[in-house]
Each structure stands twice: as C-alpha cells, then as structure tokens.
Nucleic acid binder design. Sequence first.
DNA 1: TTGTAGGCGTTATCAT
DNA 2: ATGATAACGCCTACAA
Lengths: 348, 348
Amino acid sequence: MPKTPQRSTIADVARHAGVSKATVSRFLNHRDTLLTPAIAKRVEAAVKELGYKPSPMAQALKRGRSRLIGLVVADITNPYSVAVLSGAELACREAGYLVMLFNLGNESERESAGIQALSSYKVEGFILNTMGHDAGAVLETAGQGRPVVLVDRMHQGLDVDFVSLDNPHAIDLCMNHLISAGYRDFLLVSEPLGQVSSRIQRARAYEAFIQARGPALRGDSFECGPADEAALMQRLQALRANARGLPAVVSNNAVVTLRLIAAVAALGWKLGEDIGLIGIDDAPWAPFVGPGVSAVSQPTEQIGRLAARCLLQRLDGLTAPARTILLPGTLAARGSTRSRAAAALAPG
Amino acid sequence: MPKTPQRSTIADVARHAGVSKATVSRFLNHRDTLLTPAIAKRVEAAVKELGYKPSPMAQALKRGRSRLIGLVVADITNPYSVAVLSGAELACREAGYLVMLFNLGNESERESAGIQALSSYKVEGFILNTMGHDAGAVLETAGQGRPVVLVDRMHQGLDVDFVSLDNPHAIDLCMNHLISAGYRDFLLVSEPLGQVSSRIQRARAYEAFIQARGPALRGDSFECGPADEAALMQRLQALRANARGLPAVVSNNAVVTLRLIAAVAALGWKLGEDIGLIGIDDAPWAPFVGPGVSAVSQPTEQIGRLAARCLLQRLDGLTAPARTILLPGTLAARGSTRSRAAAALAPG
DNA sequence: TTGTAGGCGTTATCAT
DNA sequence: ATGATAACGCCTACAA
C-alpha cells in the first residue's frame, strides 16, 4: 500500500533548492522580476523534481481570486444549456480558468443558493442562465462586485453584459418562412413564460408580427407546462378545426418541440401534412423526425464562448458599459413546414 | 455604487459577540461541546446579524477536505453523461456536497489534467466516467488515497467501486428481441473501442451471443468514428446485399444510433423495412424517428445516484472491498425492429 | 468553558 | 536580488 504521497508545498521546494519560500513564489508568479540565473535554475529544478503544483485553494485564500468561473444553468438536461456550457468551458479553460457548475434543475428557488455557493468558492465571475427568481438581489450581496454575464435570460435591474440569440429576428425567420410557405393560422407554444426573458421576448415578437400583418393572419398562443399534454392536444385540435388551411405551430424551444411532436403523434397526425411545425432550437435528431422538423438553430457554442469572453475581458479590467450581444439564428427549413399550406389554400 | 460588502469573517463575528475566534469556531463545528448558553446566544446572534458564512476554501485549506466531489465526464455532449451527472449531483447535494465538473470533451489526454485539477481543489472523492487513458496511474499520485467510483467505464488495475449498465444483459436483450423478430444477419456498430470497457464488453457479449447460436446467425462488427460516414454506408450496403432476409444493426450507444439513422436516411432506406435498428441508450426522440427506434434504455439517473451514494459511503468510512453494481436496462421495442424479418424469411 | 497561538500553502511587504 | 515575516480565514492543541 503506497503511502499517500503528500503533495509537495512551496516550502518543500524552497528547502530543496536552498532558497526562501519568497524566492520560489517570485520565480513562479513574477517571471519578469529578474532572478539570478543560477537561483532560477535551482528553483526550476526543484519544482520539476518534486513535481510541485501550487495549491489553487491557498492561492485563492491569499489573493481572494480563484481562477474559477461560476456557471449557473437553469437545467442541465436542456441541450441548450449543455451546448452553452461546453462553449464557455472551452473558452475559460483556454484562459486558464476552471468552470464550476451549478445546476438549478429548473428549481428557481435554488438560484440564490447556487450563486452563494459559487461565491463562497470565490469564483471570479459568473455566467448565469437562470430562472430570474431573485438573481439580482443575491448578486448585490453575494456577488462581491464580481463581473456577471447573462446568457439567454435577462434580468431587470441588472445592468450587465448579456449574450443571447436575437429573439425577434429568430421569430421573424420562423414567421416569414411559414408565410411564404402559405401558412396563415398560427399557434405559438411556449413553456410557461414566467420571468424568463427569452420566452417573453419570443412571445412578444410573435404577437407583434401577427399584429403587423393585420387580420390576414390569425395567431394564438399557449403556455404548455410539462404536465399539460391533454390541454395541448385540445389546443392543436381547435387550431386545426378553425384554420382556413393548414395551420402551423411555432415552438419556443426544443423541449416544447418534443412535446409537440409527441402530441401530434398521439393525435395520429403527420407533420407537414396535417399541421406545420417549426421550432426555435435545432437538434441533431430534427432532420429525422417525420419529414424533418424545421427549426431556427442557435449558435449555442458561440454563445457560450462569447459569454466567457465577455467575462474574461471584465476580469482583465475592461470597464465599458454593459454590452448586449445578440446573435442571429439560422433557418433550417425541413418537411414539417413544406409548402402544402399554399396548395391547400390555393385560391382561384 | 454600493461598496463591495466584504464578506464577514469569523473574526468579525468574534469581535461582534465579544468572544474569541475559537469560541465562534466551536459554536459552529462542535455544537456538542457545551458552551455557556449566554455565550452561545451571543455568538448565534452575531452570526445571524452579520450573515456570516464560513469560507469553504479556508476550511478546505485547514482541514484538507472541501465538501467537494470531483466528477469527470468523457463528453458532456453525450446525453448519457448529462443524465448521470444530474443524478449524481442531486445525491451529492442532498448530502451537502457540491459537484465540481470536469469535461474531457472526448480528449483522453486531458484525463490526467482533469483529475489533477480536481485534486488540487481538494475534492474529497472522484466520480469518473473517463476514457481510460491513464486514470489509474494519475489517481495513484494525485488521488491522495481519496475514494473513487467508476461509472460505465472500468479501468484495469483500479480496484474501486464500479457502477454501470449490465452490458451483457443489455446485449442479450437486444439480440433476443431481434431474433424473435426474425432477424438472422447482424452488424454491431460501435465507436472505436479503444480502452473503453463498456464498448468492449458490449462487443464481446455480441460476439459471444452470435458464436453461441452457431452458423444460423451471421454477425459482423464495425467501429465507426465521427468522420466515417462513407465507410459506414458501405458497410450497411454490404450487410444488406449479403443478408438472407432483413438484416439488423445494433448500435453501441446513442451517438452511434444517430449516425446510423443519418446513414440510413442518406441511403434512402426506411427503418424497419429496409433494415432493422436497435440501439443501446434510449432517447426522448427515439419514438418519433421513422417508425420509432428500438432501444435498450439505461437507468441513467439511477446510475448517477448510486455512484454518488457509493462514494458518500466511502467518505463515511466504509471500507468494504470494491463493489460492482450492474443495473439492468429495459427494452423499448419500436418500429425499427418490427417483425418483418420473419415474414421476409418465411420458409415453407 | 474559554482564550491564545500556531499553522494549512500562498503571496506581498518589508527589510537586507 | 533575496530573505524574513505577516497576513488570507479557519481550526485545534494547549494553556488558563
């Protein structure tokens, strides 16, 4: 049984090299400070020989900074969160930071707990994709004035960097596509809007679009929770019954898209034939469900990378006013919105 | 602009309560040690008033333990990893631990870096779902004798707790189902086996099954990397050309299943009609792709929970010999393996 | 029962 | 250019 090989400390290195701890520390941190070459060599050798690695915790304690970035995601189960996470993680890693993850599991009450936990580990900044429960208040107290960047979800009264899909543009992409495919009757299905800014923005953009086109378009909306399958099916039936041609459903995100796909299947309908469907959030399986599910795809990794980059800039001392970075989505038109609506309507 | 409200320290509390730091510390950690009620009250009040929260980093530095669990996942992009992660995270949280995540992004070289990074933050234990590059060696050195539990992937010479799907059973589930649906010609498609024990085990179980049934069955295998679409399509065509009826493909995991679905689509084939398909790993979209994709579903959250539980027991001092926990998968038979093979073969 | 003091592993401020 | 030394926030002998 190998004795637990105690990690060597800076003191060990100092002893081994016959210098003081301070010298070792300087060699490590302030390479610029000129050390006598001979000493430098000795220290370097000792470091290598002992396999010395500084203790991040001790450094954090001393410096008040930890080389840690705190990332709070609303729901790690949502592929969107994961994609953002991996983008952010990569960017942080490249800059020498480690990401500490806190998953809310969609429980907004845990939001402040998450921020506080992360904060207590002295994370140097926060990337937040949260529920909007009370992040603002908590950050005032626990944030310690550390930089914050919001992803996908904005919070009122929190004047910080914000990175997100350009939601109105994404909705326009959906709607213009649907209209040019001949659809005239719509239903927007969202998860319960709550305080979630992205959901709200999409709903607003949708309503604005419908309004702007006058009575030629009919647009309704529905908030669909995880247990609302029955209600959802009823809404879909009503939509189809009252439509003047083939109606289309617009889905607020991938989770809802899947619910819609299930509902349509349960009704025995076929996508693109009995109903149109397009969603925000593309997914790797989308091309293969039915005739292919149309979607507006988000540049998720890029969102994550940019969020991290914003944060890193702040950590580098950038003091510019809060920035808002909106990234365009891209349309992937597939069979679920093929131009049958036009045919069905085919006027004289 | 609110002054950054410095977190209050134990010294602040002591001063506020008019006692020594030691007393505060005792009040916090050793509630059993009898304190004069009057003093206890004063300390309690001070703690509350100042909103004092101990600094986990300082505690970790002093105690050598951090209330942190290190979790290394091979690829956070794989839903399997996420599911395990969320199960483990929940169990850890309930026990008062925070999970620190390290994502390898499928780069096995980063495995040791991950373990070391986590270790330097003094995580109290490791949950590893890694590539099998050199985790063993690294743990000897960096693991500091802290408990480890392996998930899904075993490592030679690492005698620790192991939680996983029962792979042979899962393969038997697949194969028996296929056979009773009339299939006789098979292809197993895996990601490159490498050192990954689960992939290897599944491949072995598959081969064993084929062998055991004698020449009535024909079974081939193929290792398919991310860029092997063309080769994959060729293999599928060869499979179909040489088969005596409808052949079936068995997919090693969800990632491969998606690749197979794409290949089948590119060939213009229909699942369950031109080829059978069943995969290990179920997915929420599986019922809606083509006629539904058959799968053996893993109890992923449970795997994560159990892994965490094993670890927590070890942290509680359990010294039992290394355990192996194998969980059964469950078959979800769908259209992609419907019993057409039998019909096609229909002998006299 | 409570306080004093030392140290966990670093870094930074002084001297030297 | 280098070396003592004092923190960082906390815990724990040991002393009182």
